[in-house]
């Protein structure tokens, strides 16, 4: 998966703005209310470039709470739940794809 940092902002399908929380690195999403949440289901979803750019600009302006926001693809399930749109984002939501040694 090409690093999202190198992506041009072309939006095909639904996207969200995601980043890592500054203090602990946790995966966070930008909400429609203009704040960060760890719950992908609460993320603001954009389906057009203009809206995605707007959300990204707002998220990027907050550099004290999160690091390097970018646009990530999501899928919407038939009942409109927000799910990660590729393997990379899936791993960011659920962790490594194997069981951890210390667990």
């Amino acid at each position: 998966m090409t690093s999202p940092l190198q992506q041009k902002l072309k939006v095909h399908g639904p996207v969200v703005i995601t980043a890592n929380r500054l203090g602990d690195g946790a995966v966070v999403y930008w909400t429609a209310a203009g704040a960060w949440t760890t719950d992908i289901a609460a993320a603001a979803v954009a389906t057009a470039s203009a809206r995605a750019k707007q959300l990204l600009a707002a998220a990027t302006a907050d550099f004290v709470h999160a690091v390097d926001p970018y646009v990530a693809p999501v899928e919407l399930s038939p009942d409109r739940r927000v799910l990660p749109g590729n393997l990379r984002e899936q791993i960011r939501v659920s962790g490594p794809t194997f069981s951890l040694p210390g667990a």
Binding site: D24, G25, R92
Partner: peptide, 10 residues
């Protein structure tokens, strides 16, 4: 100081 940011944590 060897601190990276990875996918889900530092």
């Amino acid at each position: 100081n060897g601190v990276y940011l990875q996918l889900h944590a530092y």
